[in-house]
Nucleic acid binder design. Structure first.
Length: 568
DNA sequence: TGTGGGCGCACATTTGCCGTTTGCGGCAA
């Protein structure tokens, strides 16, 4: 018997009880028991007090004893007999929950998708109290659609969708202001929908205009408080628009940014003080509703610092609020150290990239075009990069407000050699090494390549260390903890590639790296000027790993950057 | 069903919108 089995047993019991239309708190008690075990870091053999855990009581404890003594649970066995297995897929039908399924089963003996479909077609469902004609029609539709439902979309796809919706909203004059909310605002790697808060005095006008200008596949719901639609934008995507007044904006933005767990924690705090948080404000004990000019003021009202959206996760961020002041922010960023120009596969000249970085207020930057192995990217030969170096040096003399360093993003070749010889690397200020080929090699071969790069004295940083593309490919599967150890050993930087396609390293590895005192560079890897903006979302992603300012080398002043990295 | 506070009974992770039906389930952050 292991912990996983116990956890899965609890979850199954909860699921079956839900299908029986059991008391939701009873169902919840089994889910909670599963959760308690999951959150406990100890293995089963280390838990001598398992029956004494908070959340495990008489009923749930009996299940554990059953499992430990007999390897199976009597309760689950009974439920499995009582609940037809065909019922389980019914929970996936939007609009059907445990209670409605139980009702249908009791009234019509529904025990599978097929019997439900038949009951809808013979119009028996609409005769059941609580169900009507519309529900019956909708159920039939949903049954046909089952399985074709859209999954989660990667953040880079969501970003495109958000931008295009925002462009449409700017054209609606009745919209006073708006903001994206939801999981995209929290910089999640994947989202299942997009959420917007809209300030307007004329919600119904805005609603109708949105329905006109957006590529609507389906209108799910639409009132004066919200509009829910399915949009047809390359992929199908759910979109929610919430209409609020200016005064409600801050609390609405907070509420619809989530996460749900974060909101629940905040509301618990309010409740313990006799107050009530909703998206419309904070209701105090005397019944008056207080609103706020900003999320910052809202948090301050509960004696909390501003918690950045990206940190609003499982609620535990509230317990760590005093650490927030030390985390990296976009304002701390002084430079971007990975970008491409027309010399390789970038879209803009060196000068144009420099001007763009100046506009961002950076004090320094590094030009890092590809090297000649990467033919598709027009990688630079030794001769061309020497020309580029002299061009950059000349250009650098024109500016006294930004320092332009000569760098490269050098390929680590499939056989473990590096694309440039040491004597050439020596002439550069900053060397990024990265893998762009032969992803299917064994982990051993990949690690040999990475070791060759990270142990080279002229290499400063390993870029996008796993090669993953979110929602598309897993990368080349390096042993990242080992790579982090090497980074520590050779005093090298690892990259957090801020391009939303990558977010590489991922959160869990960033946390390990920071613990090991390995420095991180957040880079945009920009191939065009507008991609320099990805520093913002890159920093948000870094915050999710609780990266401190001093961990991130982009926050270092120019002098420190030169002293510790360029001329170390 | 579990916990807490008191041995029987609340309250449980919060709050509000919409659709469909006319009280409430499902859903969302």
């Amino acid at each position: 018997m292991n912990k996983k089995t116990i956890i899965r047993t609890f979850e199954k019991i909860a699921l079956y009880m839900e299908l029986l239309g059991e008391n939701p708190f009873k169902v919840g008690a089994f889910r909670k028991a599963a959760n308690v075990l999951e959150l406990d870091p100890r293995s089963l053999s280390e838990m001598d007090d398992i029956l004494k855990l908070k959340g495990i009581g008489k009923g749930t404890g009996a299940v554990i004893i059953d499992l430990l003594e007999k390897g199976e649970s009597d309760l689950l066995k009974e439920l499995e007999i009582e609940v037809p297995s065909g019922l389980i897929p019914l929970l996936r039908i939007p609009g059907l929950g445990g209670k409605k399924i139980a009702k249908l089963r009791e009234a019509l003996g529904i025990d599978s998708l097929d019997s439900l479909r038949a009951a809808c077609e013979s119009h028996e469902v609409s005769k059941v109290p609580g169900f009507g004609k519309k529900t019956e029609e909708k159920l039939l539709q949903e049954i046909e659609l089952l399985g074709t439902k859209k999954g989660k979309l990667p953040v880079w796809q969501i970003e495109t969708i958000v931008k295009s919706i925002e462009a449409e909203m700017r054209g609606i004059s009745e919209i006073i202001r708006f903001s994206v909310a939801g999981s995209f605002r929290r910089a999640k790697e994947e989202s299942s929908d997009v959420d917007f808060i809209i300030v307007t005095d004329e919600p119904s006008v805005v609603r109708e205009k949105l329905l006109e200008v957006l590529p609507i596949e389906e209108t799910v719901a639409g009132g004066d408080a919200k509009l829910s639609v399915v949009l047809d934008m390359a992929d199908l995507v759910d979109a929610d628009f919430r209409f609020v007044t200016e005064a409600q904006f801050a609390t609405a933005l907070h509420h619809f940014t989530g996460s749900k767990d974060h909101n629940v924690r905040m509301r618990q705090i309010a409740k313990s003080k006799g107050m009530k948080i909703s998206e419309y404000g904070v209701e105090t004990e005397d019944g008056t509703v207080k609103t706020f000019d900003s999320e910052k003021e809202f948090f301050a009202y509960f004696d909390l610092p501003f918690i950045p959206p990206s940190l609003r996760m499982d609620g535990r961020e509230i317990d760590r609020a005093d650490e927030i002041a030390g985390l990296v922010t976009l304002e701390d960023i002084r430079g971007d150290f990975h970008m491409h120009t027309t010399w390789s596969d970038g879209g803009y000249s060196i000068r144009e990239m420099v001007e763009a970085c100046r506009k961002k207020g950076y004090s320094h930057m590094v030009i890092t075009d590809h090297t000649h192995y990467l033919k598709v990217a027009n990688g630079l030969t030794p001769e061309r990069i020497r020309n580029q170096i002299s061009e950059i040096r000349k250009l650098n003399e024109e500016y006294d407000d930004i320092e332009i360093f000569c760098g490269t993003e050098m390929d680590i070749l499939p056989d473990g050699r590096l694309d440039f010889e040491d004597d050439l690397l020596q002439e550069l200020d900053f060397v990024i090494a990265s893998i762009h080929s032969n992803f299917n090699q064994s982990q051993e071969q990949i690690m040999e390549r990475l070791h060759a790069a990270i142990s080279n004295p002229y290499v400063n940083i390993i870029a996008h260390p796993t090669g993953r593309i979110i929602g598309q490919r897993d990368g080349y599967n390096p042993d990242v903890p080992q790579l982090i150890e090497w980074a520590k050993q050779y005093n090298k930087i690892l990259e957090l590639n801020g391009n939303p396609h990558r977010f590489d390293l991922a959160i869990e590895y960033l946390e390990i790296a920071q613990k090991a005192d390995v420095k991180i560079a957040i880079n945009t890897d920009a191939h065009a000027i507008d991609q320099l903006e990805h520093m913002g979302i890159g920093v948000k992603y870094a915050q999710k790993a609780w990266l401190k300012k001093e961990t991130v080398v982009n926050t270092w002043p120019l002098e420190k950057f030169i002293r510790e990295i360029i001329r170390k």
